[in-house]
Write a protein that binds this DNA or RNA. Sequence first.
RNA 1: GCCACCAUAGCUCAGCUGGUAGAGCGGCUGAUUUGUAAUCAGCGGGUCGCGGGUUCGAUCCCUGCUGGUGGCUCCA
Length: 642
Amino acid sequence: MSPIPKITVTLPDGAQMSVNTGTTAAEVAKSISDGLFKNSLAANVNGQLVDLYIPITADSKVEVITYKSPEAHDILLHSTSHVMAQAVKQLFPTAKVTIGPAIENRFYYDFDVEPPFTDEDLDKIEKRMQEIIAADIPVRREEYTRDELQKKFAAMGETYKVEIIESIADNEVLSVYTQGDFTDLCRGPHIPSTGKIKAFKLLNTAGAYWRGDSRNKMLTRIYGTAFPSEKELRKYLNFLEEAKRRDHRKIGKSLELFEINEQVGPGLVIWYPRGAMLLQIIKDYWIREHLERGYELVQTPHIGKSNLWETSGHLGFYREFMFDSMKIEGDEYFIKPMNCPFHIQVYKSKTRSYRDLPIKYAELGTVYRYELSGVLHGLMRVRGFTQDDAHIICTPEQLNEEIIKLVQFSFDYIRKFGFNEFEVFVATKPKDKYVGEPAKWEEATAALRYALDEINVEYALDEGGGAFYGPKIDIKIKDALNRSWQCTTIQFDFNLSERFKMEYIASDNEKHQPYMIHRAIMGSLERFVGVLIENTLGDFPVWLAPVQAAVIPISENQNEVAKQFHNRLIEKSIRTEFNSKNDTIGAKIREAELMKIPYMFIIGEREAQDCTVSIRRRKSGQKGVYDWEKAIAIIAAEIEKQ
RNA sequence: GCCACCAUAGCUCAGCUGGUAGAGCGGCUGAUUUGUAAUCAGCGGGUCGCGGGUUCGAUCCCUGCUGGUGGCUCCA
């Protein structure tokens, strides 16, 4: 009998081991230490994630994946989704399994089941999962040919799996994972046994179309999460709680900023005085920043005749998002979903010379888009919203510089609101709905990428995510909970300038077609305010706070004097509120704290006599007693800081 | 739009298996005249989202609608 051939295994620290061929990563882990073996979930063999029990048959670099490895979480989540599917199949044998991947911090599994699961079902499933985990059932991989698998899953009645197998490329290895009575088509890798799952929770059910296509059957999805320890699970659940606490809909109500009312219509925002003030402050700032950068303000109607939208291509490519038309004196009018055709009209009002370019038209234009009722969400997704819109019309030579300026402008602008982390995407040509030659798309996309490269901005590609009229740069901002929100969009457009026959006279005295860029920095003011609320909990910096100060007399005896001070603040354009209620000082302060008013100016008997005020800063408390002018200077200085 | 869940006073919510509703906060009135996150007392306030049905009787059961919430191409 010939001796078993040896192979060399190289560990991450460079150490090498000579082992029998066919040794598994599990055995390697065990030979290093029992502790490592106990914590091992999978292995990375030559850069490839594999199961712990796959035999290694050649010299390899081997890294044992433990709970602490960055790759571990996805594997754990994915394996937990299999345990869930196993529990579901045991409890509901007629349910058909479909797909069940890991997503960020969570997993889901979609089932075709009648009737759909309820919350009580989730408890039952969770209990059964605990039993499966307690039984520590081994999870093993097997590979099969396409035919074998088709038959296998067809025999099991798992028609969705059969369909999936059909859609997998010929050259891929087909594998299944089996744990006890449950077998699932899966690429893996998976944990070696169900007992490796230490902490999990099922979160909620949801409907989801098979393959995400609304023409397909609606499946029942269960979301869940899993972590290496109870502690980490709790931390994640706390994060979800914190997100709830920051919900802009809740804060918007308690701070009296806005409402969305059934009587008015879904997705339509009613701004209360405080919310409208907040919006106005943002708008004022926005206008200042644009005028400083050479933009010109324009203002355009809310509706326009159908031929305008015909020419722009909106009726061809964007109709599904537009509200139905209205007939006026025999003509058909549409409510604008975008401002661009109007801005083009302004451009075309006279002959333009290359010396005039770039021309930059800016407008806080309110647009209306028909969004499906199911996707509406507070201020984040509405049907009527104000875009901080601008159109830059320039020569081809100017394009690069203009894009760079725009990206930098966006970063600078958004940083002012306390956001410092960005994700940048370049979105390319959509698969079906697009206008223009593919070659032009290529060229324009390259121009966007070139500009970003030039200023060293890292970005990811969003394939097929472009607008119908051109590729775009999208900037997402990260909030305090590390969630990202789409705000800035910089869209190249070679479609409209052609459709509307825009032109300028170049230095060669010939007519040329200009380039056009659409862009919005905040995107939608509504959404931006929503993000701002969630990021700050409604505790706005003083320059943004709709009410910057509360003037609070200690007793009614100081009402007269306090009112005078209040008037001084108003004269200085400080947004202030006078609390003359017959409440104790404690109650009046509490009220101001809850309404997140940053400054409180308190006047008692002593202050009334000396013409001073006691300053109290929200959250941090008393700041001392100052004469009126000094007190006003203090708050004014903080407002100035922006 | 589709699936599930939800809808009670201005707000937050309670109301067991059907017998026409309650609390706290806010509001109003009065007392108190307050020194840095809730003074006390009293009083109002609801066709229980809307429309049908079952029932002697519906906030509760059934059904239609409206609105809200969580989701709906992150490949086995």
